[in-house]
Design a protein around this nucleic acid. Structure first.
Length: 270
DNA sequence: TCCTATGTTGTATG
DNA sequence: ACATACAACATAGG
């Protein structure tokens, strides 16, 4: 599930463990979510450390522990974080368990496209600091979007929206939601957008990010889906209809991902 | 059996 | 060097 807002939601799930000591680390050493990281060092450093803080950016999460210890988590396609009882026994897909006195912090991912990154040091790791500035930030400007689209001129705009170096946190459903609101056909080559279309695209990127963060998982412990007025709840329905026009939605693979759009609203314009 | 899945990355080709 | 397209990764569920 995890795109921008879902990642924030899952990060907060570990909040009950803040300021609490990790008394044991359980992990599945062969799980590919640990690819490229030193598991023995990870377990040794986290044991007896305290969870100090956490943050999310794009689709990444970073947890800071005492002793200059940093744990990065990417949820991939099917990853999730949960809180479980202190005596929780990990199942097949529970790859990392941080045991605390009163609970366990658990990372699970059955498909294992997710990733754990471990590092030691006084400041946050490079992969974290080099994440593109958030879409909600001041540096996400119309110009920066226009320049990026120009360099990817022949790619369908849908594929471009999935590029994390300019649209951090956008995933498949958010890209479709943005294009639908901006009334842009997902196949429209990025280089053919008018100035007005780029301005609209920029505005809808910000709107969808802001609203998604407001709606999704901002109420208690349950992930809350966007309402029926969004494309979101209709995109996988068979015979689903556009909430704005009532027209039947179409689905096709574009930019390597299944894409849903409203043909009555989103037309090719070049 | 075959197809799909809210993601990223390495590789081949232009 | 840059842009573009796509297979590969691993697993479950319809």
């Amino acid at each position: 599930m995890p795109e921008l807002a879902e990642v924030q939601f899952f990060r907060k799930r570990w909040d009950p463990g803040l300021a609490q000591k990790v008394i044991a680390v359980l992990l599945h050493p062969k799980a590919s979510v640990f690819r490229g990281c030193d598991i023995a060092q990870l377990a040794a450093s986290l044991t007896d450390s305290t969870l100090l803080s956490s943050a999310a950016a794009a689709k990444q999460m970073l947890f800071r522990f005492s002793g200059d210890t940093w744990l990065g988590i990417h949820l991939g396609m099917t990853g999730e974080l949960t809180i479980q009882p202190a005596d929780f026994a990990p199942r097949k897909h529970d790859h990392l368990v941080l045991r605390q006195r009163d609970r366990s912090l658990v990372f699970s991912d059955h498909r294992m496209f997710g990733r754990i990154q471990f590092s030691l040091g006084p400041s946050a790791p490079d992969w974290w600091t080099s994440i593109a500035p958030a879409i909600s930030s001041d540096s996400f400007t119309v110009d920066s979007v226009a320049n990026f689209l120009r360099r990817r001129a022949r790619s369908p705009v849908k594929a471009v929206l999935l590029m994390q170096e300019r649209f951090p946190g956008i995933g498949n459903w958010m890209a479709d939601e943005i294009l639908w609101r901006a009334a842009l056909h997902p196949k429209q080559p990025a280089g053919t957008l008018t100035t007005e279309q780029i301005t609209t695209l920029h505005r809808e990127c910000r709107w969808v990010c802001r609203q998604a963060l407001k709606i999704i998982g901002n109420e208690g412990d349950a992930l809350r889906d966007p309402p029926k007025t969004w494309l979101f709840p209709h995109r996988w329905e068979d015979g689903g209809r556009c909430p704005k026009t009532g027209a039947k939605l179409l689905r096709e693979e574009i930019g390597g991902r299944t894409t849903c759009w409203s043909p009555a609203r989103q037309k090719l314009t070049h």
